[in-house]
Design a protein around this nucleic acid. Structure first.
Length: 137
DNA sequence: GCCAACGTTGGC
DNA sequence: GCCAACGTTGGC
């Protein structure tokens, strides 16, 4: 099983909206970046991901699960763009702020830190565990 | 609100 | 195929 991170502006698509979709999940539409799309093509059902709120909030707030592999993005007719479906699994006990991630030496290589503009990114197993540790508060 | 980083586009 | 111009994202 692989780990990922999905970034969203809470004003566009928030964790609460994701939770409201329940176990059926929802398409992660709107990605218009080849790197991000390619990562979604690599995803398998059951892969886990962090749900990150960008902009004003800048925090990892929850855990999601891939529930459908990559398929055409229904928000566009442009067949270049694909997306997976994800469903909310559980919120983090304590949101992990970007500041905390940056302050953690073991997380210095996280894509979130190194390439802040990439909206769908891989997370290593070590990084996954380190973030969960921070989330315990 | 500003600006750095980065991706994309299009002229050559 | 290169690269300048431009648009977008997201942290600050």
């Amino acid at each position: 099983m692989a780990f990922w991170l999905f970034k969203s502006e809470p004003g566009e698509w928030s964790w609460d909206m994701q939770v409201a979709k329940g176990a059926a999940g929802e398409e992660w539409t709107g990605v218009r970046n080849y790197q991000a799309r390619n990562f979604m093509r690599d995803m398998a059902v059951g892969d886990r991901g962090f749900f990150y709120h960008s902009q004003a909030e800048r925090a990892i707030v929850g855990i999601v699960e891939v529930c459908k592999t990559a398929h055409p993005d229904s928000s566009t007719d442009d067949e270049r763009w694909e997306c997976v479906d994800i469903r909310a699994v559980e919120p983090l006990a304590h949101p992990v702020m970007l500041d905390m991630v940056k302050a953690e030496p073991g997380l210095a290589d996280m894509v979130l830190v190194k390439n802040s503009r990439l909206s769908v990114q891989p997370v290593t197993a070590d990084q996954w565990a380190a973030v969960l540790k921070l989330a315990k508060g």
